[in-house]
Design a protein around this nucleic acid. Structure first.
Lengths: 188, 188
DNA sequence: TTGAATCATACAACAGGATGTTGGATGATT
DNA sequence: AATCATCCAACATCCTGTTGTATGATTCAA
C-alpha cells in the first residue's frame, strides 16, 4: 500500500473509531463533528475530507457490516432448516456482535435491520426459486417473520447480563422454527 | 375545561400534529423547531413552553401510544393461542396503524418497539405466573421471539402496496405461531 | 539521483443558520 | 384591578459546512 493511502486509511479509521465510541454512549443526534475530531485528534475540517456529515460515518459502518451475497456460505441442507439459514444468521450476528448489538438495539438504526434482512432475503428466495409450489408472496411474509424474530431474539440475548448459554439459545431457536411457539409452552 | 387550558391543549396538539406531518416525510434529525412552529403557525419560542426539544415531541407521542395494562383486554383462551396474545396485538397495531407503521418502520424509533414489547410482556408472563413447569428465562426468549416476529411482519405488511388480504395475514400468523416456520415451507 | 511540478492532507477562519433563554406585550382569570 | 398564562421578538451562543492556505508526499523529466 502507498504511504499516502496508508495515511488516509488510518485517518479514516481513526475517525470511524472515534465516532463509534461516541455512538455506543449517546444518540447520534447529539454527536457533533467536533466531538468526533476532538476524540480522534484531528481538526474539525479534516472530517469533511472523509465524510459528508455524521450520518455518513454511520452509513459507512453499516455498509461494511452488510454481508455480500458471495460472502455468505450457501445454504446446505442439514446445517440449516428447510431453507431458513438460521445458523448462517446466528454466526453472522455473533461475528459482528460488537456492532450488531448496538445498531440493532434501542439506540440503533431501524434502517439497519432492513438492510440486513434485504441482504439475506435473496439467498433464501433463491432456494425456493424453482419450487413452483411455494407462494412467492406468502414466502416473503414467512421470511420477514423469521428474520424479525431472530434479530429480535439475538438483540435480546446480547442485552441480557445473565445470558442463556449459547447452545441452549441455538436449540431454542431451532425448536421455535421447526415447531412453532405454541408447542414450546404448556397448554393453559 | 377552562378557556386557558383549552388554548394550551390546542396549541400543544397543533405543535404535535405539525411535528407528525413532518416526521412522516423526513428523518427526525432534519426536523428543526423552526420547521414545526412555522407549520403550526407559532413563534419558535412558543415551542419551548411545551417541549424540551424535537425529541420530546416524539416521546410524548410514543407514550400516548403505549397501552396501559388495564386498557388491554385480558387474554381469553380461544381468542388467543396458548397465552400468546397475537390477536390482541394485531388489533392494537391496526387501531394505531397510522402511527405504528411509521414508528416501527425504517425511519422510526427502535426504542418504540422495545417500549411496546415491554408493555405487552407482563400480560403474557402473568398468564404463566403459576405454571411452575414454565422456565421463566426461556419464556422471556419465546416472548421476545414472538413479539419481534409479529412487529416485523405487521410493519412489512403496511409497507406493501399490494397487501395480502387481512384475514390471510391473520391465518398465516396463526399457523406460524402454532406450527413453526418449517412446516409452512415445502421440504427442499 | 535530483529537483521542480503536482497533488493530497490538514488546518484556521468565516458566514450562515439553529438553539435555547430572557424580558415584555396581550389577553384571560380571579 | 390585580394576577397569571400564553405567545412573541430579540439576543448570545454554538454547530455547521465552506474556502483559502500551508505543509508534506509523490511523480517524472533531466
Amino acid at each position: 500500500m502507498n504511504r499516502r493511502t496508508a495515511i488516509t486509511t488510518q485517518t479514516k479509521q481513526n475517525l470511524i473509531d472515534a465516532f463509534w465510541s461516541l455512538y455506543c454512549d449517546m444518540r447520534i443526534e447529539k454527536i457533533t463533528i467536533k466531538d468526533i475530531t476532538n476524540k480522534a485528534g484531528y481538526n474539525r475540517g479534516t472530517f469533511y475530507e472523509y465524510f459528508k456529515d455524521v450520518y455518513d460515518v454511520l452509513e459507512h459502518i453499516e455498509n461494511s457490516l452488510i454481508p455480500s451475497l458471495d460472502e455468505l456460505p450457501p445454504i446446505t441442507i442439514g446445517s440449516d432448516m428447510c431453507g431458513m439459514p438460521t445458523n448462517t444468521f446466528l454466526e453472522l450476528y455473533e461475528k459482528n456482535s460488537k456492532y450488531y448489538a448496538v445498531l440493532l438495539g434501542d439506540g440503533g438504526d431501524p434502517a439497519f435491520a432492513s438492510k440486513l434482512k434485504n441482504a439475506i432475503k435473496p439467498i433464501i428466495i433463491q432456494e425456493f426459486a424453482n419450487k413452483p409450489t411455494v407462494n412467492q408472496k406468502e414466502l416473503d411474509y414467512v421470511i420477514e417473520y423469521t428474520l424479525s424474530a431472530m434479530i429480535g431474539m439475538m438483540s435480546y440475548w446480547y442485552r441480557q447480563t445473565d445470558k442463556l448459554p449459547s447452545d441452549q439459545l441455538h436449540e431454542l431457536i431451532r425448536k421455535l422454527t421447526e415447531q412453532g411457539v405454541t408447542r414450546q409452552l404448556p397448554a393453559l
